[in-house]
Every structure is written in C-alpha cells, then in structure tokens.
Design a protein around this nucleic acid. Sequence first.
DNA 1: GTGGTCTAGACCACC
DNA 2: GTGGTCTAGACCACG
Lengths: 128, 128, 128, 128
Amino acid sequence: MRILLDDSNNEPNYLQIENQIKDMLYQGTLKPNDQLPSIRVLAQQLSVAIITIKRAYDDLEKEGIVELRQGKGCFIKAVNHKKLEEQLEDEFKQKVMELIALGTQRGLSKEKMASILRQGIDEEDNHG
Amino acid sequence: MRILLDDSNNEPNYLQIENQIKDMLYQGTLKPNDQLPSIRVLAQQLSVAIITIKRAYDDLEKEGIVELRQGKGCFIKAVNHKKLEEQLEDEFKQKVMELIALGTQRGLSKEKMASILRQGIDEEDNHG
Amino acid sequence: MRILLDDSNNEPNYLQIENQIKDMLYQGTLKPNDQLPSIRVLAQQLSVAIITIKRAYDDLEKEGIVELRQGKGCFIKAVNHKKLEEQLEDEFKQKVMELIALGTQRGLSKEKMASILRQGIDEEDNHG
Amino acid sequence: MRILLDDSNNEPNYLQIENQIKDMLYQGTLKPNDQLPSIRVLAQQLSVAIITIKRAYDDLEKEGIVELRQGKGCFIKAVNHKKLEEQLEDEFKQKVMELIALGTQRGLSKEKMASILRQGIDEEDNHG
DNA sequence: GTGGTCTAGACCACC
DNA sequence: GTGGTCTAGACCACG
C-alpha cells in the first residue's frame, strides 16, 4: 500500500492519510476485509508519530470505513459496494453545487459557469 | 456595506470579511475608488477585534484590491474591469479542474462526472 | 463546571469527561450556546494532558453535541431539546433490551427478569 | 460444544469464550463433572492461540466454575444448583441497578424509566 | 506482534 | 487568550 505525504500541502497529515485510503477503496485498490498496515508499521513508513496514524484510523472507523480490532489489526469493513458508489457521487455532487453557489455569489452568470464546466470536462477528456 | 460573519463557519473571520468584500466588488456593489469603513468602525459593527479587520484589509491590499492611504482610509483600487472578470473566471476554472482531478482520483468515470456537472447546472438553472 | 475523574474506573479519562458533559446537558446543567472551559484550563483542573481533553471535545463535536471554534472556544451546540430527550430514551431502551437479551441467554425466565426489574424500580423509588 | 467467536465484537476472545461456557452452564447444556475440550483442541477448533483458551479456562477456574486437573483436562465443578441460580439473579439485579443509576444520572425520571423497563419486558414477552 | 490510552512538551493559526 | 496539529516517548490489554 502506497501512501505519500506532501508537507507543502495544507491538509494535515492525518487527513492526507484518510483521503488516500478512501481513494484506494473507491478505486478498488483496497477491498472489504483487506488488512491495512499496522499503526506502527505505517508510522515508520511515513516517518510520522504513531498517534498520527492512530488518529487517521480512528476517524476512518467512525466513518464506518475500517474496523480496528485490538491485538489483530485494522481491516476494511465489509460495505455494500453500491452504497459506497452512491455516497461517492453524492459527495461529488455536493462539491459541484458548492462551487456553483460560490460562482453565483461572485457574480458569474450561469451561462458563463456552464461554459467553464463544459470546457473543463472537455479538456480532461482530451488529457485522458 | 453589509458584511455578515458566521461563527459556525470554519473559515476564519478575516477570510470571511475578505471574501465578502471581493464578492461585492465582483458583483458591482463596490466600485473603484469607493471608500471602505474605517478599521475601528467595521470592527465595532462586526463585534470583532481591530486586528481582525486590519488583517483583512492588509491581505486585500497585498492582492492589489484595495489601497490603504495613511490617515485617510481604505479605498477600492482602480482596476481594469475586464482584467477583474478574467481573473474571476480563471479562479473558477481552476476550482473546476481541481474538482475534476479529485473525482478522477476517487475513481469516478469522466462520463459520470460530466453527467453530475450538467445535472448541477440544470438544477441551478431551474432554481434561478 | 464540575467534572470528576475516577482513576479506579476502567473507563478511559476522555470517555469519563464526555459522559459527564453529556450528563450535564441531559440534566439541563449545560444549555445550548454555553461555553465550556478551554482545553488548557480543563486539562489543568483535571491534571491530565491537553490532548486528553482535546480528544473528549473532538468526540463530542463529531457526535454533534459541541462545536469547537478556533481562537474562540468550545460551545454547546444548539439542538432541538425534544430530539435530545428522545435520543436519551432510545439509548436507555436499547440498554434495557440488551440486558434482557443477556438474561435470556443466561437462561433466566422472563417472569424472573420482570420481577427483578420491578423490584429494582421499587427500591430506587424508596431511595428517592 | 459449540462456541462462536465474533471478530467484530469488542469483547476480547477469551471473554467471549468464558461467557459462552457460563451460558451453557446456566442453561443446563453443560452439567457438573462434564469435561470441556482440551486447550489445544478448542484452540484449533476456534482458530485462536492456545494462550487465549488457557486464559479463559484459568479465569473460569479462579471463579470456581471449572477445575483443571493436571494431565486430565478441564471439568465443570460440582456446584450447588441453587447457589448458581442465586448468583445469576444477583448479577442480573446488579446490572439492573447500574442501569437505573445511569438513567438517573442522565436525568431520566423514575416514572419514565419504569415505563421503558415495563415496555421492554412486554415486547420481549410478545417475541417469545 | 497488534491496538488503546496517556504524558509533557512543541509550534502554528486565529482572536 | 483560544483551538489545531504533531512529536517521541510510555505503559497497558490482547493474541
């Protein structure tokens, strides 16, 4: 499992860890019942304090994504895959709506925003 | 000039102030050469510390949006209107690209993202 | 605000703190928008590490009970009082059902359990 | 003898084993002088470490429930059946009183608690 | 070996 | 002053 911490990123370490684990789950690199690296091992890998990994794993557990078993390790929880995908799309949609709300507040016309959004999609298509 | 601070918002007060002043400029409520309220007046009006307003005005000056004139006050800088609009669109576009990058990282297909973006625009259209 | 830590209690310190704050909220000693003691002050009061209080406050925030505002403090969130009471009763009822399930598993007859429960209520009544 | 371990349960393995053996004794599935499986057989059956079974059997011996006979095995101790039942009821009653104490601390009225307890009994009756 | 809790500091951002 | 993040250890319970 490959996690990279970017010190120049404003996101705190524990959040970068959480998000990258979520990414791997969403992408399918991690699957339900997979065991994550132990807190100590990951801490050493990333050169951070044990408690930083603990916090990331704790947060993921509260979100229902992993399960910490004392003396056993940290495991990806079995989840309904369809529900996961829906949740992912909902999150994305929410961010889209926030972005549109911001544009509106800044005085951008809806036509202009729509044009920029379409342009963004097209550019990404060409890169892909 | 009407600025509202939301205590429950994670955005720090000084940023909320900066952003709302920018919004008013983008929307046309504020125009070049308009004078902003004095630091202590605005501080009293919003019930925040003077240093908070000072920071907001300082930041806006660094961004070239306002001009602090010793003993006279804080004024909106004369800016090329076209440049302002371009800057606004560039910022928005950058956020769009970041959002698309996030979706890609989370494993969302480009088709799905395009669909969600279009859906977001349509819904906003209907509300408007 | 009076919080007492019991070292002989198996409950970790951060949980004892969380529960006692919940108790005060349920009992009405704490009300929405009340400010809790600062992390540093409470840590000194209870002679525990700052991070222990932080963890308790963080947990309460994730449960939607308090709100941490940077540079401002920790505040009881405004909540619908009726909803709070319902939640409280639901929690209690769940514990009752767990207890009854345990008794059943242990081979206690329902009549016996009912009798013990009634007896418990009566004794508590007499003490009150 | 059928023991099931639930990995997702926070209860440690050795306690789950102890409790399920107690349950079988309380329910009459196990009787005085019955022989329990050997440590290594049960360890293999449950796919746990030998030390885990050892701890469970040791604890049960300390509680006077089983007897470990060198080189012979683990046997349910002869106990006065009436005493067992009394102990069982006492444990249950103690849990009831703890629950009522918790409710009181959380500000639940005695009437409300009594109502919830009665309701719990009734629902269990209907299920049975 | 695993996770669970905790200490006693530190530096940062915000007010 | 406030909270937010982090370090580099420690001891405990569990397997």
